[in-house]
Simulated scan of single mutants.
Amino acid sequence: MIETDILVIGAGPAGSTAAKHAAMGGAKVILMDKKSEIGSPKRCAEGVSNNGLENLGITPDPRFVAKEIDGCRLVSPDGTDVWLTKEEIDLPEAGYCLERKVFDKFMAMDAAREGAEIKIKTLAKDVKKTDDGFIVTCESMGKLFDIKAKIIIAADGPESHVARWAGLKASTKAKDMESGIQFEMCGVEFERENIIEFYFGSCAPGGYAWIFPKGDDIANVGLAVIAPETDKTAYEHLEEFVANCPATQNAQAVELNVGGDPVGGIVKEIYGDNILVCGDAAGQVNPLTGGGIISGMNGGMHAGKVAAQAVKSGDCSKKSLKEYETIVQKEIGKDIDKYLKVKDYAQSLSDKELDEVAHAFQNVSFEELSTTEIVKNLVKVSPKALLKLGKLI
């Protein structure tokens, strides 16, 4: 039996951040991941904001930053585009396209340097509650062993089992789980460099398609769909998009990534006696964009801090850990709720309505690149948006 104060299950950005801050708080921490290489395979378009990294105390490093981003292009079904770049508007912050296979290992190394013990290729097989914590049965290299922890932090991704094994209501409904698929491609022909592109409408029912540049002629090209919204697979939609999009018609794929993306907001229960949930496992994802790196790391940071304090106080009960939910709701929950309303509105629009919005946007002056600014201008040009989203601005 291995004993520890805090066991973090899942070494993605959220889990590694949780382990780092728990260790910084003085707790004995184990961080485990089922993969043999942390960060691989990636299941992400890899975009983050500079401000988001800064708030987490992370300095961009050329070893994990693939490309600096200067804005975005929004494309409606008929090809009408809206440019929100430094050439058109003031950008309050830069963004980056990461190399997740490097970035995730950097985050795990940060946790290790703060004192967390890392166990790779270690799979959680079972979770049992005890009077003073949990016993997690693990498998590594064909061998079974148990880890006893005062607190477990479930950061095991969108397919999370740990929280449910522990008795929490932490599942995402099928209608709120996007099926994401992506090629990393070379030979992509960009209209402008350093710009991320979003394509809306029936090319990706329930979601959108994207092109995220990674330097030279390389980009992540993918899309996400809601399965009940289409009779095609995500892969079929991606093949059609790549064949029809001018930027990718001459490009070739060198990597394929697939995965689920929870876009239904934060799950019902993210804490309980001796357990916290963070990252994709907790639904800490922007429902509008599907991006979850920064919000998940914020969740992980607060989970690690609250868990360490609970261990120090000797009280790891649900009552003690409720502080985590309070902080998360204040720091990221309100924004996620807002984005969820915008997502539901966007999904209600037909291709024709999306084109009409894009046409109207041609005569709108944007002041900055932000969700609030986009919503503000949607309300200006669309009575339907005013009815659905007017209260958000």
Rank of each mutant, 00 (worst) to 15 (best):
I6V: 07
H237V: 01
V342L: 14
Y345H: 13
D33I: 01
E46A: 11
T172D: 06
L349A: 12
L392P: 02
A227H: 06
L392R: 10
K34F: 04
V267S: 07
G222A: 12
D273W: 04
W210E: 14
D104M: 12
M177G: 08
G57F: 04
A310L: 10
G265S: 03
F145G: 05
L56A: 13
S313P: 03
L378Q: 06
N257P: 00
P383T: 07
V29H: 09
I89K: 00
K119Q: 11
S320N: 14
G206V: 06
E353F: 03
G57Q: 10
Y96A: 07
A385F: 14
D176Q: 04
I147M: 10
G133W: 09
N250D: 04
D156P: 05
A204F: 07
V258G: 12
V357F: 12
I393W: 00
G25H: 01
A219G: 07
A174Q: 02
V65Q: 03
K343A: 04
L56Y: 12
L378N: 03
E99S: 11
T371N: 13
K129I: 06
I195P: 10
L389H: 15
E88G: 03
K380N: 04
E68Y: 12
I293C: 02
I135L: 09
I135E: 13
L321Y: 09
G264A: 09
G260R: 05
C278A: 15
K175T: 08
C44M: 09
V29C: 03
I153K: 05
G201I: 15
I153V: 02
V75Q: 06
D5T: 08
D337R: 01
